[in-house]
Design a protein around this nucleic acid. Sequence first.
DNA 1: TTAATAATTGAAAGTTTGTTCAAGTGTTAG
DNA 2: CTAACACTTGAACAAACTTTCAATTATTAA
Lengths: 119, 119
Amino acid sequence: MKDVCEVRCIHEENVQRAQSARTDDGVLEEAAALLGVISDPTRLKIMDALRLGELCVCDLAAVLKMSISAISHQLRLLRTARLVRGRRAGKVIFYTIHDEHIEKLMDMALDHCRQRCGE
Amino acid sequence: MKDVCEVRCIHEENVQRAQSARTDDGVLEEAAALLGVISDPTRLKIMDALRLGELCVCDLAAVLKMSISAISHQLRLLRTARLVRGRRAGKVIFYTIHDEHIEKLMDMALDHCRQRCGE
DNA sequence: TTAATAATTGAAAGTTTGTTCAAGTGTTAG
DNA sequence: CTAACACTTGAACAAACTTTCAATTATTAA
């Protein structure tokens, strides 16, 4: 953060255009945080597993072949980011994907990758 | 990865349903990687700045108020992940968003966050 | 060729992240 | 109440990430 204010090659017009139309920093940082939560392989696998219906922590551990503790830690992040929702049924807590919007976002990312893989 | 194979509360049906319909691990990991690249505030700001047109590294450094080196490092990640494209014009390299699909994915994430912020 | 500019790169430092292990809730059945 | 079960949580450690600083490449102009 030093050679920033020296005027070098800067294209004034372009910079101002970008400056004036830029998305609010708060929104961008929230978006980054949201994307950060689904950008982990384990968490994406959890989300993928939940697409066909609710699963408890043990189920998820079995599907992903990981420890219950590890899954639970990740579920907390997913819960906090409201990507996932839990409902208690006695001792068991069943998790589902929080809402349709999230599912669409995921589908879009997966489709994009499938396309690329098939290139 | 120890208490995985002990049968505890596992709901067989649900687990098998999730197992059989799960998305290919390769695709999921690529998607995680792709999302990982846009899930950083700096990189998301770069992408956002590029939405109105091409900018060079210096321009981006000016817009984000960061060092040229830091921006360049991030641009390399964005380039490698094919989220961004560069065209050389003499000494200057102008960057743009790689394709429309990526732009849509971004819009979707940003809209989602704007909605949430306005709740 | 030499000097200057735009950008990239490698290494180092500081921070963040993911998993494990052990201990802690909260709920139900006996 | 007590025991067992489903799950969560905190601390710790290793792996990965982001930025800085210094050196390097590529292009153009003198």
